[in-house]
């Protein structure tokens, strides 16, 4: 599913974010990425999504070598990956329905299928009755559920979540975790960067810890391992 070999990333401003990362993640896994702020978690995630390019090393996602891929193909690669952000990144002027439908319009789905699939995911995240609302009219947790719905409406093989619970209160966070676990149970690979010790230690999954641009720990059913 994901294969990184000797990945090294230095930003133009001189910051070295990743300093030789080797990792393999299999289809269907649920992986936490933990580590202090500025350790390289975000860069690690952005590499998978081709939001940034590695300075050196090989990144293969869904059997596509992201280093050799042409600029024009990038949108098509992104369609197979659902992404959930800490700040939701919803289109502010579109309704909940339209926001989710956008991911399907991009792949030129028929309006009939768009309707059906959007309503399906809205049902899954429990927001069927909020389809006509715009993001500003929703709570943070609801907005995050919309962004998860958008990420999975395409049935991607991989969902990346960058601190999805970072802006949410604990109760809401558990709701988000339940949804992510359910998606994972259907066979979707989930990679989630998080600072939540509680979540990592309660919902036991593989934990990859990144510090100073290196993977310092990689264990199945691991612990958060940092004092908050």
């Amino acid at each position: 599913m994901i294969d990184m070999q000797g990945v090294y990333k230095k930003y133009p401003n001189g910051v070295t974010a990743l300093n030789g990362v080797d990792v393999t993640i299999e289809q269907g896994e649920f992986v936490y990425i933990v580590g202090p702020s500025g350790a390289g978690k975000s860069t690690f995630i952005k590499l998978i999504f081709r939001e940034v390019k590695p300075t050196n090393g090989k990144v293969v996602v869904n059997n596509v070598n992201l280093q050799k891929v042409k600029e024009k193909r990038i949108p098509h690669i992104r369609r197979d990956i659902g992404v959930v952000y800490q700040d939701f990144k919803l289109l502010p002027k579109l309704t909940v329905f339209e926001n989710i439908a956008f991911a399907l319009e991009v792949i030129e789905e028929t309006p009939k299928n768009i309707r059906r699939r959007v309503m399906e995911v809205l049902d899954l995240v429990g927001l069927k009755n909020k389809a006509r609302f715009i993001p500003d009219e929703l709570s943070g947790g609801e907005q995050q559920r919309v962004s998860i719905a958008r990420a999975i409406v395409n049935h991607p093989k991989l969902v990346i979540a960058d601190e999805p619970t970072g802006n949410l209160d604990p109760d809401t966070s558990w709701g988000i975790m339940n949804i992510l676990e359910e998606i994972n149970a259907r066979g979707t690979t989930i990679i989630m960067a998080t600072h939540s010790k509680e979540i990592v230690n309660t919902v036991k999954k593989r934990v990859i810890a990144i510090e100073g641009g290196l993977i310092v720990r990689d264990e199945h059913r691991g612990e958060y391992g940092y004092e908050v």
């Binding site: 949108p75 990144k89 956008f102 958008r150």
Partner: peptide, 13 residues
């Protein structure tokens, strides 16, 4: 910002 989001969701130029 919206254009950026659209690109992240997989929209072509």
């Amino acid at each position: 910002k919206e254009i950026g989001i659209m690109k992240l969701v997989g929209a072509t130029n």
